[in-house]
């Protein structure tokens, strides 16, 4: 370990500062006391759906379709989650079902 305690604390502090910056910046730029620009209000309305779509793909960032198991466990479990959810519309059931299928696939099949 090359860093001193003080250096480690500063490094952790920078990570905290960076995270807090990304979370607070929009709220500081567009406080409720001033009217929010129309363009930002538009984004606030349409961004949530896009951000959720982004987040779904973000989860697959380490999946390779061309090598290894070709993402078959991920794609299968995703199909299970969607099918279960459209069928029963029970959030916990869909999540648990898909996760169990995924765990079985990566532990016993692939």
């Amino acid at each position: 370990m090359t860093m001193t305690l003080a250096e480690r604390l500063v490094t952790i502090g920078m990570v905290i500062l960076g995270t807090v910056t990304t979370r607070f910046l929009p709220f500081l730029l567009f406080p409720p006391s001033r009217p929010t620009p129309q363009y930002i209000r538009y984004l606030g309305k349409v961004l949530p759906s896009a951000a959720l779509g982004f987040l779904v793909v973000y989860c697959f960032k380490n999946v390779s379709l061309l090598t290894g198991n070709h993402g078959i466990p991920e794609l299968t479990a995703t199909a299970v989650v969607i099918a279960l959810h459209l069928w029963k519309r029970q959030m916990l059931l869909s999540i648990a079902g898909g996760t169990v299928v995924y765990m079985l696939l990566v532990q016993y099949v692939f």
Binding site: C59, P73, S94, G98
Partner: peptide
């Protein structure tokens, strides 16, 4: 192994 898929499943359901 594989338990982390619970997060992916959560985001899929929310989406």
């Amino acid at each position: 192994k594989g338990i982390s898929f619970v997060m992916t499943a959560l985001f899929i359901v929310i989406f």
